[in-house]
Computed example of a mutant assay.
Amino acid sequence: MRIAVISDVHGNLGALDAVLADIERRGVALAVNLGDLLSGPLRPRETADRLIALGWPTIAGNHERQVLNDPPERMSASDRHAVAEIRPDQREWLRSLPSTLRLNEEVLLVHGTPRSDLECFIETVDEHGMRPASLDEAGQRAGDADARVILCGHTHVPRSLRLDDGRLIVNPGSVGLQAYTGEHPYPHRVETGSPQARYAIVERIGGDWNAQLLTVDYDWDAEAERALRNDRPDWARALATGYV
């Protein structure tokens, strides 16, 4: 079994199309999407149409929840752009997405952790910033989830971690945004250090699951220019460089 895993597209249609082409080139028939689909200053409406047409197993991230439920005065600029752009039918699609999804008896999809779409899974954010989580921290967040593979997103950091009990936690990184600053639960920054789109392929060979973390080139300068046209120089730098 091979599964392509994408997350955190954030309306970056150029990056998404490049990743879709790479998945097709590699002949992966099954793919899943871990949320944070549209929020950002790029192309949320067109991205929604592309994702809906794919029909992949898809879950909602924290930005879907915020776009659907937060009052405008509490929204970030990225969420407000998505709200202004998407159609009613696209909102209903977002509303239909579950927060977690059991793909099969071995694979669980979450955005953050099984208990929260805002909690980092295999990274830890504390007063010093973001760092890799310890096995104990990640194990506590996994709780009693009995899946052999737990696929997560949210942090945009591509990484896999095998717990002492053999469960494999995989974050494919972000398709659409390679650097950002966050405030929850403490101020922190995330920087992958290059602008390529990220995704993963997880594969079961015999009885073992393994993950391949992949990067894909695309025209990030065009998306950075789009962000600038929409008054988001912070996104333009992140898209073009992978740094805040």
Rank of each mutant, 00 (worst) to 15 (best):
E123A: 14
L177V: 02
L101V: 08
N69R: 12
I59A: 04
D144G: 08
E105T: 11
E105H: 12
L135E: 08
T192D: 12
V175Y: 10
H63P: 00
Q90D: 02
D117G: 00
R148K: 14
R115K: 11
D117I: 06
G182K: 13
R87W: 09
P187C: 11
C152F: 01
A147S: 14
L135Q: 06
R91D: 00
L51H: 00
R141I: 01
G176K: 05
N171W: 07
R102T: 07
V125P: 04
E92D: 14
D126M: 03
P172F: 13
P172V: 13
I169N: 04
E123H: 14
A138V: 06
A53H: 07
L151E: 11
L108A: 13
E191C: 14
A84P: 00
E137P: 05
V157L: 07
C120L: 08
S76Y: 01
H156L: 01
I86T: 03
M130H: 03
S160V: 01
W93E: 00
P114Q: 02
R91F: 13
T192E: 11
S96R: 05
Y180I: 02
R131L: 08
L108S: 06
L168S: 01
L101S: 01
L118W: 11
V107P: 05
L51V: 04
R167Y: 07
D164L: 11
F121C: 05
E105D: 15
R115S: 12
N69S: 09
E105A: 15
N69Y: 02
G182L: 05
L68M: 12
I52A: 06
P195H: 15
R95H: 02
A145N: 14
G61R: 09
P71W: 03
E127K: 13
V110H: 08
R115L: 11
P158Y: 13
P158H: 15
I59F: 10
L135P: 02
I59M: 01
V175D: 11
G176P: 10
Q196W: 08
D146M: 01
G129H: 06
T155I: 07
E64H: 11
R148E: 10
S96C: 01
P195M: 13
H111D: 10
G112D: 03
N171P: 02
C120A: 15
R102Q: 12
D79R: 07
H111K: 12
V107N: 09
P187R: 09
H156Y: 08
D126P: 08
A179Q: 13
D165Y: 00
P88F: 08
I150Q: 07
R198D: 03
R189P: 00
S194E: 14
L103I: 03
E92G: 00
S76L: 02
D70Y: 13
L168N: 02
H154P: 03
N62A: 02
E127S: 13
D136Y: 07
H128T: 12
E119W: 12
Q178P: 15
P57C: 05
E183Q: 11
P72R: 15
H184R: 11
S78T: 00
G61M: 04
Q90C: 04
L101T: 00
P172R: 15
H128L: 06
